[in-house]
Design a protein around this nucleic acid. Structure first.
Length: 415
RNA sequence: GGAGAGAUGGCCGAGUGGUCGAAGGCAACCGAUUGCUAAUCGGUUGAGGGGUAAAAAGCCCCUCCCAGGGUUCGAAUCCCUGUCUCUCCGCCA
């Protein structure tokens, strides 16, 4: 979280970025509040000084066996007069902190006000027939069953069956192997439930609260992405310079309420409450983070390229950037059945925004500095599966398994 | 779930009511010295906030010894609650 002094000194800049990220925060109110805070702080400090001094004197008197009763009554009055102010100060301080917690990360200068195509559409396939969408495909092949999913859980859940379930599992294993064996990641199998603090440090809270599943009894959050547990592994750690970069990857189920998103692109697997994702998180030196961002994009792209799926890369515009991100690329795959570009990976540099909230630092000359964190989906399966099913379908309604996946599925086609 | 032990600065670790923001060690930094990347000696080194100052330095002050309450003129030290770690018992994948 931003330091209050920093906010004070960068009000205009922070206000601008907040607005661009779609948050209208009351910086004017903050100014006023902060002014109050300062004067109140002065008053309270002055009282405490007085109190400390007199309290010490009481000690001295008592040790000498002298009478301290007049001092004691003075102290009592002093205390009475100021408890209210102390309470006020506490309240203001809390308000100030709450306000600051809502200020989003700043944005890298290379981010535009419009989305930018980084990689033009590549590998679009020609069909000699009209491709069917994954919903009908999945139904006729008996590998996807949304009906059953809603019986068990509710709408906008998915249920994979038979070879569909195996294919899903194959994708996850394929990606994990790729990143651990080829890209040098340490694999983590994290808790899927995380505490409120973890959700705060990565920047999901306070903004995205309505989009979270929360367990009633224990107040735990179902993680919306493995980014949350992975990043928090190092929370409040001070690392040696030689320990970074650190590269963690993990599979996790991801849970999102998707509040308010009904109606748009919600068919079939396009937007569901629970999905699978392999996530990559890097912890790097601040000077390295933008090189790492490019590198992460490449690592995520390898998945798509090995599966030979049509795709493109977009650099997000300012207003599309998430709360915590300074710069983000999206990888989108094309799905000919639904005729849509689908986001399967988001690659972001958070700079020191998350590290600041989580207290992740390295030792540098003369003290410690916050490191930079980045993450990339590597990648999310539902839309990947959609693109795979729809691109690898035959005119007979079968699905051919791409070569790299066959060792994982043990079958070459479905249908 | 029950019983007990613990949580102190970058790290280790002392400290059971005042003069403790905290001994000591290590590490780091600065300097000195030694004919060589080591040794020795001296010094410095936590964070946040308020004030003063054009700003920086400096100076003054407040807060922070897991978190939140409480007792007390005064709490790192005593009491309560919570979190986490460790040990034992129970229960259970």
């Amino acid at each position: 979280m931003y330091n209050i002094r920093f906010v004070e000194e960068h009000i205009e800049e922070l206000k601008e970025v907040s607005e661009k990220k779609g948050l209208s925060l009351d910086f004017q109110g903050f100014r006023k509040l902060n002014k109050e805070r300062k004067s109140l702080k002065g008053e309270v400090d002055e009282f405490r000084r007085e109190k400390n001094k007199k309290g010490q004197k009481v000690g001295e008197l008592k040790r000498e066996g002298k009478d301290a009763s007049s001092l004691l009554s003075e102290l009592e009055d002093l205390k009475k007069g100021v408890t209210k102010k102390e309470k006020e100060l506490k309240e203001i301080q809390k308000k100030v902190n709450d306000f600051i917690s809502w200020i989003p990360n700043r944005v890298h200068p290379s981010v535009n006000s419009e989305p930018t195509v980084i990689k033009e559409p590549t590998g679009i396939k020609k069909f000699s027939f009209t491709p069917i969408d994954h919903i009908n495909l999945g139904k006729s092949l008996g590998i996807l069953d949304f009906q059953l999913a809603s019986t068990v859980a509710g709408s906008h859940f998915a249920l994979y069956k038979g070879k569909g379930a195996i294919l899903e599992r194959a994708l996850i294993n394929f990606m994990l192997d790729l990143h651990t064996k080829r890209h040098g990641y340490t694999e983590i199998f994290p808790p899927f439930l995380v505490n409120e603090y973890s959700m705060f440090t990565t920047g999901q809270l306070p903004k995205m609260r309505d989009d979270m599943y929360i367990t009633k009894r224990d107040g735990l959050f179902l993680n919306p992405t493995a980014e949350v547990p992975l990043t928090n592994i190092l929370a409040n750690k001070i690392l040696e310079k030689e320990e970074i970069p650190i590269k963690y990857c993990a599979y996790s189920a991801c849970f999102r309420r998707e509040a308010g998103s009904y109606g748009k692109e919600t068919k079939g697997l396009l937007r569901i409450h629970q999905f699978n994702k392999v996530e990559l998180v890097n912890f790097v030196h601040p000077e390295e983070s933008y090189n790492t961002l490019e590198h992460l994009l490449k690592e995520a792209l390898v998945v798509i390229e090995l599966l030979d799926l049509p795709h493109r890369v977009i650099q997000l515009s300012i207003n599309e950037l998430s709360f915590a991100s300074a710069k983000t690329y999206d990888i989108e795959v094309y799905a000919p059945g639904v005729d849509k570009w689908l986001e399967v990976s988001s690659i972001s540099n958070f700079e020191d925004f998350q590290a600041r909230r989580a207290g992740i630092r390295i030792k540098e000359k003369g003290g410690t500095i916050h490191i930079h964190t980045l993450n990339a989906s590597g990648v999310a399966t539902p839309r990947l599966l959609v693109s795979l099913m729809e691109n690898y379908q035959t005119d007979k309604g079968e699905i051919i398994i791409p070569d790299p996946l066959i060792p994982y599925t043990d079958f070459e086609k479905i249908g």
